[in-house]
Simulated assay, not measured.
Amino acid sequence: MTEPTTFPIGGELEVRRLGYGAMHLRPETAEARADCLAVVRRAVGLGVTLVDTAHMYGWGANEDLLAEALHPYPQGLVIATKVGIRRTASGEGWRHAGEPGDLRAQVDEALRRLRLDRIELLQLHRLDPGVPLADQLGALRDLRDEGKVGHIGLSEVTDAELAEARGIVDIASVQNRYNLLDREHEPVLRACEAAGIAFLPWRPVAAGTTGTRSEIAAVAKEVGATATQVVLAWLLARSPVILPIPGTTSITHLEENLGADAVHLTREQYDRLDRAAGSV
């Protein structure tokens, strides 16, 4: 099975299908910060053209880190970020923040931290149940029309919510949890595939369990790859709209992850993995 290696988000942002999720880059010491800078620079050096971050990742610190590591950004690199959540000092430590004024303020903050004039892919991190969806997406549409945002995406939505959102504004991407062993959001993936919407699975590798599954281990041995590479290769074969964004703070693991698009499963191997996952 030979899969396409790129995908045009929103029909125009042509990116490598294997991206990088920056969520784990949360340095607490100067040494750790230097390591994080090195990892993200290595990712781009290895051909990553989609880097995913969010206001929630360090409450802006992750965006600051990416700008320090990569600005001025190389041609063709897409930095995707997310808004719609604010930090709190109580409860779960965060709250929904989908009021139009708050979304606009968060976008302006992200532009400043990322040192950008325009965020090419802006995703709503969570739908705010206390604010009409039309108001939330209307605010992002206004920002798009003003040139501050290129394309609009969603995160953690159902297929019904995606359909409702598409009735309000063009949706270029959806970011939901999804991997070989966790396919709760299969209906959302299928809706994205039908509409040509990029599907960015977060947690694309089932940490701690992937390598212990006998069928995954068997296929990995057959193709001369690691279990992690096999499950990422399975995602790439699953649908042409899937853009995995595995994250890591290790250059060794980064190189392992990005080697997955050189792993080609046969139809028989793909089907065996598919059946094995169904027994979870």
Rank of each mutant, 00 (worst) to 15 (best):
K221M: 13
P201V: 07
T209C: 00
K148T: 09
G147V: 12
L162H: 05
L200W: 04
R166H: 00
P204E: 01
G167Y: 01
G196C: 06
G211Q: 12
I152S: 07
T226Y: 01
A191W: 02
I197V: 14
W234N: 02
A225H: 11
Y178G: 02
D182R: 06
L180H: 00
E161A: 11
H185Q: 12
A237T: 13
W202T: 01
E222G: 10
T248N: 08
G150I: 13
E186H: 12
I242L: 14
R190M: 09
A195K: 11
A163D: 12
F199W: 09
S173P: 03
L181E: 07
P246R: 10
Y178N: 06
S155R: 10
T248S: 14
V169C: 03
V223M: 12
N176D: 13
R203K: 12
A163P: 00
P240D: 06
I152E: 07
V174P: 00
T226Q: 10
L162S: 08
T248H: 09
V157Y: 06
I168A: 02
R166Y: 01
H253K: 15
L235R: 03
P204G: 04
H151C: 03
E156F: 01
V231S: 03
S250R: 15
L232R: 03
W234P: 07
E215N: 02
R238W: 13
W202P: 07
T228A: 15
V157G: 04
E161S: 10
N179P: 01
G211H: 14
